[in-house]
């Protein structure tokens, strides 16, 4: 229990991940799935950032007068990873939204199960 509270950032990050994951997996509404995806990704960014964070140290941006001593700064690599992750997440969200718009235009529902029902009905009519 102690550990969980002292590492509260990681715990919350995993919690966010779990919430986002289950929304993405179980919820029927497409828009909510996309939201779940983003929550899941946010959880991961929080986790990454918390790995790099060291109490009391500064952000790794050097001014003209600062010396380049590594012990003064927070670990910069996770921040870079978070940026990359955000880029990936944005492109994925964009594609999913585009697909959702197409599907809505065709089937007039945001419920994935209903969409598949309609598809199977159409299929049985076909060959």
């Amino acid at each position: 229990m102690e550990e969980l509270f002292s590492h509260y950032m990681e715990a919350i990050a995993i919690l966010l991940f779990a919430i986002g994951f289950s929304i993405l997996l179980f919820n029927k509404n497409l828009i909510k799935k996309i939201m779940g995806l983003n929550i899941m990704d946010s959880g991961m960014y929080l986790l990454l950032a918390s790995i790099g964070y060291i109490d009391g140290l500064k952000a790794p941006i050097g001014g003209a007068s600062e010396s380049a001593d590594a012990s003064l700064f927070v670990n910069p690599i996770p921040a870079g990873l978070v940026l990359t992750g955000i880029v990936v997440s944005v492109s994925v969200t964009a594609i999913m939204l585009a697909l959702t718009i197409r599907l809505y235009a065709r089937y007039h529902t945001l419920n994935l199960d209903e969409i598949f029902e309609k598809i199977h009905k159409n299929e049985d009519k076909g060959e």
Partner: peptide
């Protein structure tokens, strides 16, 4: 086709779960 798009979406969701 509509069927493909739904299949693509389902495929994407599963892939994203895996990527996560």
């Amino acid at each position: 086709h509509g069927r493909q798009i739904a299949a693509a979406l389902r495929y994407m969701i599963i892939n994203l779960l895996g990527s996560g």
